[in-house]
């Protein structure tokens, strides 16, 4: 009897383990409509993902499985459950923190290597250190909340948790956390929305590397989106307004390319929208109406051709 009991016990444990393994495998392989989407909270995200260019990339590829990020991943998911049941949070209240945004960026890199290396080599790969520890700039303008609108859109704190600015001399200011100082301040998700609605193209990752470059040249530009830190959500570039830019009394013709409106959100004019004010780079003269993309590679910011005097005057950019 004792022996039999032991056997049943072992068989039971083995059975449960088998069930867990089978379920775990099945859960991660099945169409998300049968799995993730069982949770009503996920339905919006699922629908958005279905209509995005990443519809062929499975949930787990970016979000991981329950176990793929170890204790941290489990804790994250448990936290979501907790806030769902106890803080009345819905899926619409959930947003990425900075380390999650960086993890997504790392995932982007694994497929979009050309774009990544372009970004890496250009000014958009700037770090918190380079932006916030620019002493000459700090002497002219003290960093404040609004800097994060374009630099550090996903930063998890406010300016005072980022920087110590107690001293009267900006030379003594410093970023409190060394790791934070080295983080990139403008990453993929600043201009791209993973679940953003757009036309679906041949699976990029399936192509041999040699064909990727030619594809990326041929390809229509992907739909971009602005991450609005203040609202903690993306706004598709096609929904951005064209801003009437003024030069003296005349109105400047502007490109119909939504991507140009996206660039303008950070390369922005002053409150009355005067050409060449503040960071404005609106093309003028014979170049008026051209898209930023006509001359610039959006990732590296590098010029495709050598042109001069496109912008009325370059504003002083320290």
């Amino acid at each position: 009897m004792k022996k039999q009991g032991l056997f049943i016990g072992i068989a039971g444990v083995a059975g449960i383990l088998l069930i867990i393994i089978l379920s775990y495998t099945a859960w991660n392989r099945l169409d998300p409509e049968y799995t993730c989407m069982q949770c009503h909270e996920i339905r919006d995200s699922h629908a958005a993902w279905k209509s995005s260019a990443h519809a062929s990339v499975a949930c787990r590829e970016c979000h991981g499985t329950a176990l793929s990020h170890g204790f941290r991943g489990l804790k994250e998911k448990a936290g979501m459950m907790h806030s769902h049941w106890f803080d009345k949070k819905t899926n619409r209240d959930i947003y990425l923190n900075e380390s999650q945004a960086l993890a997504v960026a790392a995932r982007c890199q694994s497929c979009h290597q050309t774009e990544y290396s372009g970004w890496r080599s250009g000014a958009h790969a700037t770090t918190y250190e380079m932006i916030f520890m620019d002493e000459a700039h700090n002497r002219m303008e003290k960093p404040y909340a609004d800097c994060f609108r374009c630099h550090g859109m996903f930063y998890d704190g406010d300016i005072h948790s980022l920087m110590n600015m107690e001293s009267r001399d900006p030379a003594d200011w410093h970023i409190k956390d060394k790791v934070q100082a080295g983080r990139p301040a403008i990453t993929c998700l600043a201009c791209h929305q993973m679940h953003g609605e757009q036309a679906v193209y041949p699976a990029y990752a399936d192509l041999p590397a040699s064909e990727r470059d030619s594809l990326s040249v041929k390809m229509h530009r992907p739909a971009t989106a602005l991450y609005m830190r203040a609202d903690r959500r993306h706004l598709a570039s096609k929904h951005l307004q064209t801003v009437g830019m003024q030069m003296q009394d005349s109105v400047i013709t502007q490109s119909a390319d939504p991507n140009a409106r996206l660039c303008m959100q950070c390369h922005a004019p002053d409150g009355v929208h005067a050409v060449a004010s503040e960071d404005d780079k609106t093309p003028t003269g014979m170049y008026a109406g051209m898209s930023c993309m006509a001359c610039h590679d959006p990732h590296s910011n590098r010029l495709k051709n050598e042109h001069r005097n496109v912008h009325k005057t370059a504003s002083v950019n320290p």
Partner: peptide
């Protein structure tokens, strides 16, 4: 109404 508001850097 343009949104988000366009604001360039605001230097001293």
């Amino acid at each position: 109404l343009d949104y988000p508001l366009l604001i360039g850097q605001n230097r001293y």
